[in-house]
Design a binder for these strands. Structure first.
Lengths: 211, 211, 211, 211
DNA sequence: CTTTAATCGAGACGGTACGTCCGGTCTTATG
DNA sequence: CATAAGACCGGACGTACCGTCTCGATTAAAG
């Protein structure tokens, strides 16, 4: 996550306050809700957290990285409970992700950080590992489960089969995540049960033959 | 678009320079390419355009609105040439949109402006009218064409049919645009012919029954 | 005074509005009272005068020159009525000048313009001819009158006498004008009858022997 | 003087740089000499002082207050060395003050600040305490010395005597300071030995009877 | 009565300084 | 060492004013 990854080593001096870590991330999310990305300032986050600005910069190199980490933990909520069939599994995860993006701090921060990352390779990598991969994992898991249930054909063996599987996973991910994000942020309408059902129906029918 | 409404009314005083308008928007796009959203400054844009900062602020209230307008015109390029069948039409527009988003000024600006819009209703409306509606129009047009060709069933008459059509259009739009944006900005891979073909295949198969 | 000195020549075209001249100078003085020198703006003066900014700049080259002219005419009020004896004459003119400087537009403008003139030779010359010489004339006149009454000895003939007379006039002027200005602007107390009497007493006694 | 009151209390945080204070005031005076009041800018002062603009505004609220303080210290130079007799003392201080006003930074700044103060009570008070009172002190001191020498009669006891003394001091101050300022800035001639002698002669003769 | 030429109001223009704000670094004294 | 407080540099922000300019519309005098 941030710069003081390891719990402690044999180091000396006053240890870092773990309470401060939590307070800072909480304050960052609160500030995002109140102010949005553009108006959020490091001074304000520090004040909300009851912490000196120095303490922020000792842990995160800059605003972008702090916000990425503050938002990333929200994506840990995403799960894939086994509801028995592929359609239900998809609908469940779509609604979960939709609910997550409905929260103002997620909405603002995610797009802003992605925008910033178009000109910052390090930031892009941080986003990938902190956020994107957590989502993609759900797609992979759901697909495996459906294959075990016999709802989807198993991957063909060999490198060609592996590549086809990777392509299918990639397209599925772009379709699901992209549609949810687009509906929430651009179309600006809610991800509700009906929409989730429509989406999952289209996906299952459309992706069926791809494996 | 921006604040100076019509070319002229019965108004008095020196008219605004239309040349300046163009120079400013060109300069804004150039600055976006060179600097990205975060580093772009109004002073720099003014200098590039050979124009005083005052002239910028007389036309646009702030950075966001300027960038929206500067980027919006790029979306005028998007067209839906009639390639004879639905699949080809979809692939064509997917590749066009993908190529547009591959350009650095579009990429950065679009996401940044969308992010900012989550906390700014006026900006959201500006984006909708300047960008989103231009894209959505293509979906509507392509669907009508496919219906005339008999590739898609016609809309059922009556209010229920109209609502179903609107839902189908909305879902299609979120799926196509969302997938392209997600692949370009998050997955960070190119929208090439093969991917476009896969996407269009999935869409046609999946959306077939929805009308 | 200002740039269109002569009434007209053999020129053609629309003649300048004399009403505008007056309105501008009035507006300038009013603005000085309300805003002081530092906050006075040309746009504001134009608006008060019901006139376009162009019209101001067609007549005066800049703010300084406009203000000098606007204030200068106030000094035309100064007179030296013959009250019968030197002491009364001095007291009369001291009170007049004190009353003039008590008016806020005079107070502010005079000092500001003088300050600006320390780095602007043209402005200094304009002030001298428009303001200072009108005051100095009173000193010369009062001295001649006192000499005719026998209250002061006549000038000695010859160049040495003329020079002595010039020195006496200069010193007298600096003493009277300087004391009044200093009391009004720095000490910030009123020039009343008692103070005028004290001042004139000191001057007559002190300057008696200088001629 | 300026906003940072005492050297230190029990306060926390990084203390203000005293070196910056000095550098800023020096830079202000240098800028006054080079540019004059009207052209002096805060950015330029900051650059000359090798300091950020923020640092200026943390100490002084605006341009006027900075210039007053920068100029005020120059008036600390004024002294009243004991030359043995009243006439010499006066001539000495007149020449000192004349020399001070001959310096371009003093000349411009003093008048500009006085002009601005006519519409700004806080500024007027700052000028009084920082500049005017330092000058007036010399008049009071010189008068006491002359009374001890027997060149001037002692103050009469009682409130009436005190009031008469205060009046005499006020008039003397307005006469001396006013005459010097007027000669320097309006008449625009030098305060040389001859003129100082004339002035002191007139004053002693004229003020002799007032006490 | 037409032409001519300078005026007028209105307001956009290039330039420049303002005073504020923020990001990120640094310097203190206190744990 | 870490921390809280807060000063520091650098630089962009959006505003305001200056003095110039470009319009279309008047307004006298000259032809």
């Amino acid at each position: 996550m941030h710069h003081s990854a390891s719990p402690r080593k044999g180091r000396t001096g006053r240890p870092r306050s773990t309470e401060a870590d939590r307070a800072i991330l909480d304050a960052t999310r609160a500030a995002l809700v109140d102010l949005g990305w553009g108006k959020l300032t490091m001074s304000d986050v520090a004040a909300r957290a009851g912490v000196a600005k120095t303490t922020l910069y000792r842990r995160w190199a800059n605003k972008n990285e702090l916000v990425v980490d503050a938002v990333a933990v929200l994506f840990d909520e995403l799960e894939l409970p086994d509801r028995g069939c592929l359609q239900s599994d998809i609908e469940g995860v779509v609604l979960q992700f939709g609910a997550l993006l409905a929260r103002p701090e997620t909405k603002t921060a995610l797009m802003a950080v992605v925008a910033e990352s178009t000109a910052d390779e390090a930031l892009r990598e941080r986003i990938r590992s902190a956020i994107v991969d957590r989502q993609k994992r759900l797609v992979i898991l759901g697909r495996e489960r459906a294959q075990q249930r016999g709802e989807l054909p198993p991957d063909r063996p060999g490198p060609a089969g592996e590549q086809a599987a990777a392509q299918a996973i990639g397209l599925t991910f772009d379709l699901i995540a992209g549609a949810i994000v687009h509906r929430t942020l651009v179309t600006a309408e809610a991800v509700d049960t009906a929409w989730a059902h429509q989406l999952s129906t289209v996906l299952i029918r459309g992706l069926g033959g791809l494996g």
